[in-house]
C-alpha cells in the first residue's frame, strides 16, 4: 500500500498539486465573495427598510433550507435552460459563494445583535450619524465577535469545495477520482487526499486560534477570560 502511495505521489504529484490549486482558488474566491455579500445582506437585514429586509429574509431561508448540492446543480445544469451557461469552476464559485454569503450574513447579523444597544446610544450621544455609528462603532465590534464563526466557515468551505467534483471542476476530489480510474488505486488516492484535507484543515484551525487571540480585547464579549 505504501509503495502504491509513493507511486501515485511520484507519478501524479503535479496533477494533485494542480487539483489543490483549484481547490484553493474555489475556496478563496467563493469565501471572499461570500463575506462581502454576507456583510451587505447582514447590514440590509438589520438596518434596511422593510421591503429589502423581507425579501432577503426569504432568500436567506431558502438557501439555508436547501442543500448546497441542489444550489450547485441549479447553477450548473438548470441555468443553461434559462440561457446562462457557465464553466464548471465559475459555476462552483458562484454556487458556493451564494451559499456561504447567506451563512456569513447570519454570523455577522448575530454578532451585530450581540452588541448591546448602549453602544449605539453612547455613539448617538456624541453626535455620530447612524451610518458612521454602524461603520466605526458597531461593525468593528461585531466582526470581532464573529471572527470564530467566520474562520470556521473558511475551513468548512475548504472541505465543501469538494462538491465542485460533481460538476467536473478539476479540483482535488475530481483529480483524485480520475487518478483512481486510471490506476485503480482508489484507496491509495483517497488516503492521500484525506491526508491533504486533514493537514490543511488542522493548520487553518491553528491559524484561526492565533488570529482570535490577537484580536481579543480584554473583557470584551466573546473574548476568553
Amino acid at each position: 500500500m505504501l509503495e502504491n502511495i509513493l507511486y501515485i505521489l511520484y507519478g501524479y504529484g503535479s496533477a494533485i498539486a494542480l487539483g489543490l490549486k483549484y481547490t484553493v482558488i474555489i475556496t478563496v474566491t467563493s469565501y471572499s465573495i461570500g463575506i462581502a455579500l454576507g456583510l451587505f445582506i447582514a447590514l440590509l437585514r438589520v438596518y434596511g427598510s422593510r421591503l429589502p429586509r423581507a425579501l432577503l429574509t426569504v432568500f436567506v431561508e431558502i438557501i439555508r433550507g436547501t442543500p448546497m448540492m441542489v444550489q450547485l446543480f441549479f447553477v450548473y445544469y438548470a441555468l443553461p435552460e434559462l440561457g446562462i451557461l457557465l464553466d464548471p469552476v465559475t459555476a462552483s464559485i458562484i454556487a458556493i459563494a451564494i451559499n456561504s454569503a447567506v451563512y456569513q450574513s447570519e454570523y455577522i447579523r448575530a454578532s451585530i445583535s450581540a452588541i448591546p444597544y448602549s453602544q449605539f446610544e453612547s455613539a448617538l450621544s456624541i453626535g455620530l450619524t447612524k451610518f458612521k455609528i454602524v461603520w466605526i462603532v458597531i461593525l468593528p465590534q461585531a466582526i470581532r465577535v464573529a471572527i470564530p464563526a467566520l474562520v470556521n466557515e473558511a475551513i468548512y468551505l475548504f472541505k465543501y469545495s469538494s462538491i465542485a467534483y460533481f460538476v467536473t471542476a478539476p479540483e482535488l476530489m475530481y483529480i483524485g477520482k480520475s487518478i483512481g480510474s486510471k490506476t485503480f488505486l482508489y484507496m491509495e488516492v483517497y488516503i492521500i487526499l484525506a491526508f491533504i484535507y486533514i493537514i490543511i484543515s488542522i493548520l487553518l484551525t491553528e491559524l484561526a486560534k492565533i488570529i482570535e487571540r490577537r484580536h481579543t480585547v480584554p473583557s470584551f464579549i466573546g473574548s476568553k477570560v
Binding site: K159, Y160, S162, I163, Y165, M173, K177, Y186, M187, Y190, I191, L193, A194, Y197, I198, I199, I200, S201, I202
Partner: peptide, 11 residues
C-alpha cells in the same frame, strides 16, 4: 473534521 463528506463516502 478535516475530511470532506464526499471523501468519507468514497473511502
Amino acid at each position: 473534521r478535516g475530511i470532506p463528506l464526499i471523501l468519507a463516502l468514497f473511502i
